[in-house]
Amino acid sequence: MAAEPLPAGDPAEPLISARGLVKTFGDFTAVDAIDVDVRPGEAFGFLGPNGAGKSSTMKMIGCVSPPSAGSLRIMGLDPATHGPAIRARLGVVPQRDTLDEELTVEENIWVYGRYFGLSRSEVRRRAAELLEFAQLAERSRSVVEPLSGGMKRRLTIARALVNQPRILLLDEPTTGLDPQARHVLWDRLFRLKREGVTLVLTTHYMDEAEQLCDRLVVMDHGRIVAEGSPRSLIEEHSTREVLELRFDSDDHREHLAAVDGVADRVEVLPDRLLLYTADGESAQAELGRRGVEPLSSLVRRSTLEDVFLHLTGRTLVD
């Protein structure tokens, strides 16, 4: 493909840049004027609950959904005028697998590579490598339909890599996979990142965001409510530790008075209280002195889930 106008090796120049990006469907606003910059080589995440507008944003970046307003530049190019040139350099893993079930595993990669104009011998060579990478080599002649969810996801990722993309877009790459399959996938994504592929992913798993992302934005109702590295987001919007208390009662608000003053901040969930504090164990000790006796009491580190809860008053996965 033609050389990109992007000055090579300038890490300050964003690979993806959105300003006031909007997506509306009728009079519903799915993405509400977001600003995003993704730098070369980083792993960038969109974290948010169902309906936050993550997929809508990914589709605009993937040049398959025209923005309703605002500006979007990908590798310095405008999707409205350079869609094919941009897509030639993107790898796309959609939220729902769209594998070609009428073809075999290896044919899926061959055919997909041909869509990028690669020669037949080149796609065969790359397919062999990619199937090795995705741990699917021994299934290469199998049809797609009977593969497990994890295998299909890996095949979708392998297929998305056939054009050696600069940017890999992953929409909920591990949703619906068991923990082991998720870890295999994460490992593959780390490798790609080491090879210099820029990863852009969406997820509603905070552990995934923490594991994979250098930087992320938290989205809610089409807006960006926070932005930064997982660590800086936690530092900024939460305390170091969280004390989780469960009581034997239907309404945990009843116990607010008993824990008053023990922590910096308290969140009430239907089944527990979250006490935000720099030192969970001292808080636990203080509750002991007060004679507060929860069913269970657990100290853990703050996560992005806590950040999200603090910012929106809601949990991520409900």
Binding site: G62, V64, G83, P84, A85, R87, A88, L90, V92, P94, R96, T98, L99, D100, E101, E102, Y112, Y115, F116, G117, N163
Partner: peptide
């Protein structure tokens, strides 16, 4: 099969 969704993610229009 949603074949065209995946095709349109490539340079094809």
């Amino acid at each position: 099969a949603r074949l065209y969704d995946s095709v349109l993610a490539t340079p094809l229009g």
